[in-house]
Amino acid sequence: MKISGSYNLPVAPERAYQILQDPAILAQAMPGCESLEQIGPDEYRMKMKVLLAALSGQFEGKVRIADQAPPTSFRLIVEGSGRIGFLKGDGLLKLSPPDAGAAGLTVVSYEGDAQVGGTMAAVGQRLIDGTAKMMIRKFFDKLASLAG
């Protein structure tokens, strides 16, 4: 499954880059995130609860940040599994000032691939796309509210 989109964060790119890698803020912003702890340089262990239609379950996984080019881009690699299946994702996040050049604003554009398996894939396939979009929007909304 391809995932792509963009979101306007109400902070400058440097600040945006910083909060996008701050475990404390990310843990608050990610829907269903129950814990996010650093286990190595640029590597985190994550616990989160996922709700997908009639399915719900806890996921445990790892988040890794790679190809860092502050404050313009980094790559996010996510791997998790739990009772309702597993998910794997790999995406590139690009941060740039808006075309109009408004100060204190960052356009975060993201593009990546996600793969789900197990019960989630067997049962929730039709809903995964919509759920992923919804979770991403919730994430950025929350991040925006925490960023200020």
Binding site: Q115, A121, A122, V123, Q125
Partner: peptide, 13 residues
């Protein structure tokens, strides 16, 4: 699907 996941895994699908 291409990864060998059965995507029609329930009577809704």
């Amino acid at each position: 699907d291409d990864n060998g996941q059965l995507v029609t895994g329930e009577l809704t699908d």
